[in-house]
Simulated assay, not measured.
Amino acid sequence: MPTGVAIRDVREQLFDAAERILLRDGPSALTSRAVTEEAGCAKGVLHRHFADFDAFLAELVRDRIARLDGQAAELAEAAGTGAVIDNLAEALTAVFQSVAVAVVALITFRDELRARLRQSGRTGGVPLLAEATAMVADYLAAERDRGRIAADADLAALAPTLIGAGHLLFADRTAPLPDDEAVRRMVAAVLGGVLS
């Protein structure tokens, strides 16, 4: 892109480019040059909007975490309707078919990124997975309140188990995505003893 040409929504354009690279090529391919080339903008654009590449990556992770809020609201609204297994299978598929698996790999891959996320007040767990776990725990609590999950169900164990098992189903970006039935079977296996 020629210099002097205004770019609309630069941050989102750069974030979307980074996401495409992550999904297509993995975290090792993610560089500032690759992002600006993928976004179709001059190399200096990223550094005009972010202090450095790790600052860009930290904002990318925070942005993708914020997107979970919409998914969490949808899942919360589903409490008391439909089948618990179906609701959770759909929510887990939405989380893990997104860039979540690639973001987790990126966070694991880049020490400086983890440090920046911790410095920004982020505590506990792997970013994105921790928020997804909270989303699932809140949903399970709402279903327990409605009597659809056993009153003595250990939600603190069930939610991370569902997220971990879901992550494992979707983790291999070179393999075909698991089908809906595979996700449903996993959710049913985890929740088998607590569904009312």
Rank of each mutant, 00 (worst) to 15 (best):
G166E: 08
R122E: 13
I7W: 03
R148E: 03
D172W: 03
V61D: 02
A66W: 15
P2L: 08
L191E: 04
E77I: 10
Q119F: 14
M135F: 07
V95P: 06
R184Q: 09
G147D: 01
G40P: 01
A156T: 15
Y139G: 03
S98M: 02
V190L: 04
L22V: 11
A159Q: 03
L57E: 05
A78R: 15
A17Y: 03
V99I: 03
M1T: 14
L46M: 07
S98C: 07
G70A: 09
G192S: 15
T3F: 04
A188F: 05
A55Y: 04
R24D: 12
E181P: 00
F56K: 00
R20D: 13
G193A: 06
V84N: 04
L14M: 10
V84T: 12
G82E: 11
R114M: 07
L23R: 14
A66L: 15
L140N: 04
R173V: 09
V104D: 02
A58T: 09
L191N: 03
P27W: 04
D152S: 15
L169F: 00
F96D: 04
R20L: 13
L75M: 11
A42H: 13
L60F: 11
G4H: 12
A157W: 12
A66E: 14
E38D: 00
A132H: 05
I21F: 05
P176H: 01
L46P: 00
F109E: 15
V99N: 02
D86E: 12
R24Y: 06
A89R: 02
T133S: 01
A78I: 13
F170W: 11
A142G: 07
L162T: 01
A34Q: 05
G44V: 00
E181W: 03
F109M: 11
L14T: 04
L106R: 07
E19R: 10
E131R: 07
A171M: 14
G82V: 09
A153N: 10
L191V: 05
A42K: 04
T36V: 06
R173T: 10
G40W: 07
S98D: 13
D145H: 11
A6T: 08
E74I: 10
P127I: 05
K43W: 10
R62F: 13
S120D: 15
M135Q: 08
A79L: 12
T81E: 13
L75N: 05
I85L: 07
R122N: 14
H167Y: 15
A79W: 10
